[in-house]
Design a binder for these strands. Sequence first.
RNA 1: GUGAGUGUAGCUCAACGGUUAGAGCAUCGGACUGUGGAUCCGAAGGUUGGGGGUUCGAUUCCCCUCACUCACCCCA
Length: 421
Amino acid sequence: MSEDTAAKKELAAIKGTRDILPGEVEKWQALEALARTTFELYGFRELRAPVFEATELFEKGSGATSDIVTKEMYTFTDKGGRSLTLRPEYTPSVVRAIVEHRLDLEGAPMRYYYMGPMFRYDKPQKGRYRQFHQVDIEVFGEKDAAVDAEIIEMAHALLGKLGVAGTETLVNSVGCRACRPAYSAALRQAAAARRADLCPDCQRKAETNPLRIFDCKVEACRTIAAAFPSIQDFLCQECRDHFRRLLACLDALGIPCRIDPRLVRGLDYYTKTTFEIVSSHLGAQNALLGGGRYDDMMKDFGGPDICGTGFAMGIERVLSMAEIAVPKRKTVYLAHLGEEARMAGLELARWLRSNGVECLVEYKDRGMKAHFGRANKLQADWVLIVGENEMKSGRFALKDMATGRQVDGPREELLALLRTN
RNA sequence: GUGAGUGUAGCUCAACGGUUAGAGCAUCGGACUGUGGAUCCGAAGGUUGGGGGUUCGAUUCCCCUCACUCACCCCA
């Protein structure tokens, strides 16, 4: 008894994870297929990296002060004493793969996409899971802001195909190594001046990463932060040109967006462009997709000085808003009557399947009524009857469940009928 | 990590502190051994998340714990 409840508890999916069952999984498959075909239209290729990496990769890549690294990583020691981490994001893995395989020397466009699970030890809530799934794309070696615009447009194209409506696109520039320090200093100064009036969390941020004060939802902090200097006033010439060009390209592509000077992304490595596509219908976790440019990351890894830009899309979040019409599949229910017919049905089903017809056989003994009841239950489109009469004559009965029309004939004839309907 | 809300059958939900915790849907069987969706009959399914307490008596009230949900934080 108590063993049962204990067993039940132990067998439950881990907090923050969930099963994707038949009925729902078709939408995932549809999304994945649409993402693939869309990205490949833009010249992207799939790059699959392992789900776990050396912990160090993320510590270096995602920024040692980020929340992701400091408190959200699934880190463990393997039997060889190595510290490994289930990836909390994908970008560092791609960068590692490029450096490791010297993909930059191949001459092929460095445009990669990937979809798969990510892991963060967060407290679960609406739109936030510990194992969640992202579609991730990255472009390397393109300095031009036009590519930032191109991928934002690509994101729009995909969301459009997925039937996601009512989104807003936010863009910003967070500057570069040349201009951000001055801005950070100004911000830090402004924050220090009002330190006493900030919430404890922001007092901490004022020292570690003052940009993030803009993220705070405390009303007092927001009003104080509103008076802080804006990054836009501190951008160096290069960053300002880049941002201007981004806006021009987005305009040329017909992508409406809003400049949000307070848009800062959670990862430390971003430079210049950052963007986010949000929806108000998602609850507190309103970002469907977020990304930006990271021009220094590869170099920081000891690789070549190659810039990068990309985004990650949350599959769970997008799916909660997507309107995907999953095409109904046509299936044949094979009804057999008697032991011999069951054997013959088995072979007939094999033959149909080898000819590309989806076909279900259940081996339970049923009367005709029960077979039809079952076929209805399963929403089969056809019932194929195999009984004594059929075996003798070699002609099988095939009934269209929607119209009630029934025909009989040799199996080749029925196959032709199944294929044309 | 912090806060709030919710835990009753596979699902959606009932049951004033008081008989053996019920219903709809779903499942299985029968009416129904060569032709479906309907209908009718029946069965199975629960330590009321778990533990403790108050009480003659707890699904109901109190405490603890766990899980889920939402929010903070953070982010996809």
